[in-house]
Simulated assay, not measured.
Amino acid sequence: MSKRVVIKEIEPKAYEVMFGFEKYLSKTNLTPTVKELIKIRVSQINGCAYCIDLHTKDARKMGETEQRIYALNAWRETPFFSETERAVLALAEEVTFINKGVSDETYQHAARVLDEQTLAQAIMAIIAINAWNRIGISTHMQPALD
């Protein structure tokens, strides 16, 4: 891959804004586990290797199981995820595939299991990782070899 601009170095104020978004998200009602599941699943959909690497490592540090991480791309087919996690994962997928829109069914399910504030916060968390994925993919950010 060809070398591309490193936005963090060239436009550090843009990163400050993104990190401000992350600071807001750190104080939401979303559990740390749900936030990491959102980040991993959206990054899988978008194909952002850097973010998948980063957030699977973060999830493991928080105690997330290998089994759930490995099954995340097939979450509908497993019994490993709670109703709240399933509602948020469905919402994450539809917000990420926004050209298809967010179905009433998915939205209403999320609205049944989350209060309005947490639902709004989940949408914002999904938007944030989509933005990070676009930064990572467009600039060819690569995960470090361990």
Rank of each mutant, 00 (worst) to 15 (best):
H109P: 00
I40F: 03
L89Q: 01
D115L: 01
T118I: 05
Q108R: 12
T31E: 06
K35S: 10
A92P: 04
D104W: 02
E116T: 09
H140P: 00
E64W: 07
W75Q: 03
E66T: 07
Y107H: 06
N29R: 11
S26H: 12
A87P: 03
N73Q: 09
T56L: 04
S26Y: 06
I7C: 08
A71S: 12
A120F: 09
I69F: 04
S2Q: 13
I52D: 11
M124Y: 11
K61G: 12
E94D: 09
M141A: 15
S26R: 10
K39T: 06
E64P: 10
N29W: 02
E16G: 07
A111N: 13
Y50C: 09
F21R: 00
T78Y: 05
A71F: 01
S2V: 09
A125P: 05
T78F: 09
R41K: 12
C51S: 11
I135G: 11
K27F: 12
E94T: 03
S82C: 07
H140C: 07
G63M: 08
M141Q: 15
L89G: 01
Y50Q: 12
R68A: 07
T56R: 07
I7Q: 12
T28F: 12
I40L: 03
T33R: 15
N133Q: 08
R86E: 01
N130L: 04
E66V: 08
R60F: 14
S82Q: 05
R4V: 06
T118N: 08
A128Q: 14
